[in-house]
Amino acid sequence: MTDEVRTMPATAQPRLMRWSVVLPGLAALACALVLPQFANAYVTEVATTALLYVVLCLGLNIVVGYAGLLDLGYAAFFAVGAYTSGILTAEFGFNFWLTIPVAMAAACVAGIIIGAPTLRLRSDYLAIVTLGFGEIVRIIARNLDITGGASGLIGIERPEIFGFKLMQVQHFYYAFLVLALLTAFVCLSVERSRMGRAWFYVRYDEDAAAGIGINRVTAKLQAYMMGAVIASVAGCLYAAKMTAISPESFTFNQSLLILLGVVLGGMGRIPGVVLGAVLVALLPEVLRGAGTYRPLVTAVALLAIMLFRPNGLWPDKRV
């Protein structure tokens, strides 16, 4: 039967044990674990960027893929995390690890401020508001003294763990790998829970969801805030890795790239989003040889993907 999605008994956890996903996943994880032992600093650096995008795309996927909200200003939450952590360590001498909960709280507050009034709107309006929000955060960062203005914030402390200071590319590679795995675990747990299902109900039919007893505004706000929190944690680690951040790291382009990763791989499900994130990070590097033709080649590649795989490279089976 063609629409037989799963043949597991009702009590089994569906999807968890699909070998077609688990085996390549384990293989990818094994490669990821040993990569810095064989690769040079350049490759490790690119791979670290890829892991950063994995975290950001997984976070945005909660908002776009699960709850169906088009967010065009996601980099703003990434900025909130990076600046919160950066300012606290550089200006006030906070321990890096203590800045993470503060950054998460700041992202929650920012998420509520922007989400509570706007999530009542339907998707298209939300896109415009989030676009504006992204720009507002960037422009504020450009103009405040505490954020270092246009030249940015410098002298961010490197984190220490059990007396070991994270310094080299490899160290940050592993730190981002841990964060990416943690994020994937969190997403997977929530995706299969009551709230996760509520997001899908709201995404597929808002009115039916309301009619069945789901508070759609609360459900959307929770997805939005959870996405914000994940981006802020990624921002903390990003600030620590770079030791200097400037408003230009958090432009509209950055938001678009993250969204591109989510859509490219196939939004809604974790394997597709991870693939999309890695592609977004790798594509500019792979196409370095194309020189000035790079934007053209990128555009053609993206168009081809959207033409031939409209639901993404590794789409959600249900759509």
Binding site: V190, R194, R197, A208, V319
Partner: peptide, 28 residues
Amino acid sequence: RLFKEMTVLENAMSGQHCRSRHGIVSAI
């Protein structure tokens, strides 16, 4: 107005949303 892209069971489970309470944190 079913959630057509989801499974039959997931549709039936949606009714239980308002009779249950665990959220994101306890799921993680």
